[in-house]
């Protein structure tokens, strides 16, 4: 498999501050990767480096096999980018703007119409962008990133400003781009919404990479407890506790709901006990650790190091 993105010990310093410090990772076609971190963790700098708008102080980057700073036109045509705060000239219409970008990229004639349609902007295509809502501008930004069916998509905070419905539409488009063989790199801090939409997560903190892997793999490494929530018959919480015998780790949510945190090992043992006859509960929910908790875990680990 040929890699579409390759970063090798990339460092970028501004004065004495290292915005990006020794980051390596790579990605292949059909991979969706989330770049996650606080503001100032180095996400945008990393995007700029991959776009060739900034040069690394040390290390090397290859995008589609080329150094992005060389500005090779053939590579640029296969690259889509959505900036964090996308802005267009307010006096031009959506169609005019998209046509301009499509021509710059030598897109197919009429491609702008198809993209406007796909992102549900046809009704507003001939209105000035000044009249667009934030969500519409974001969709127009996404439309320009998709011109020419790019092989690499770099999306900086793509879902900010989108309402939940549009957010779902956005992830449908990401899935389609992935199916077409594109590498999609998106940065975000809305972690929980990423679940189920991405193949891999790269967690950044102050310019360092602190974790890299699929969500499942990271959960496995972190060994965070899952939350088990048991519901009993009316007022049965006391009985349940008596039956369980271990009172210390239980939390009463109310009269008939009891929760406790179980590490992966505990969980299996506990479920086996629950399966025996006579366990005084009616329903059980198992909540795996969320992305937010996972992120907090890795950050905490980094801080204690």
């Amino acid at each position: 498999m040929t890699l579409t993105l390759e970063l090798n010990a990339v460092t970028r310093s501004y004065g004495r501050i290292k915005a990006v410090d020794g980051i390596s990772f790579s990605a292949g076609p059909g991979e969706v990767i989330a770049l996650v971190g606080h503001n100032g963790a180095g996400k945008t700098t990393l995007m700029k480096l991959m776009l060739g708008l900034a040069r690394p102080s040390a290390g090397s980057i290859a995008v589609l096999g080329q150094d992005p700073a060389a500005g090779d036109a053939a590579v640029r045509r296969r690259l889509g980018y959505l900036p964090e705060t996308v802005s267009f000239h307010p006096a031009l219409t959506g169609r005019e703007t998209l046509r301009f970008y499509a021509r710059l990229k030598r897109g197919r004639p009429g491609e702008e119409g198809a993209l406007l349609e796909r992102l549900g902007l046809t009704h507003a295509a001939d209105r000035r962008i000044g009249t667009y809502s934030k969500g519409m501008r974001q969709r127009l930004g996404l439309a320009q990133a998709m011109i020419g069916t790019p092989a690499v998509l770099l999306l900086d905070e793509p879902t900010t400003g989108l309402d939940p419905e549009l957010r779902q539409q956005f992830y449908v488009i990401v899935r389609e781009m992935r199916a077409a063989g594109a590498t999609v790199l998106l940065s975000s801090h809305a972690l929980n919404e990423l679940e189920g939409h991405i193949d891999r997560v790269v967690i950044l903190n102050r310019g360092h990479k602190i974790a890299d892997g699929s969500l499942d793999a990271l959960r496995h490494i972190a060994r965070l407890p899952a939350r088990l929530r048991l519901r009993t018959a009316q007022g049965g919480a006391q009985d349940l506790r008596a039956w369980m015998g271990e009172t210390a780790r239980f939390r009463h949510v109310n009269g008939d709901i009891v929760e406790f945190d179980a590490t992966p090992g505990d969980k299996a043992a506990f479920l086996r006990r629950l399966a025996t006859a006579g366990a005084p509960f009616e329903d059980i929910d198992i909540v795996p650790p969320g992305f937010d908790e996972l992120y907090a875990h890795f950050l905490g680990e980094e801080a204690s190091r």
Partner: peptide, 14 residues
């Protein structure tokens, strides 16, 4: 400042 230059320069433009 408006951020349009970054987008423009991500295109095949010198």
């Amino acid at each position: 400042e408006r951020g349009t230059m970054m987008l423009l320069l991500s295109y095949p433009v010198r």
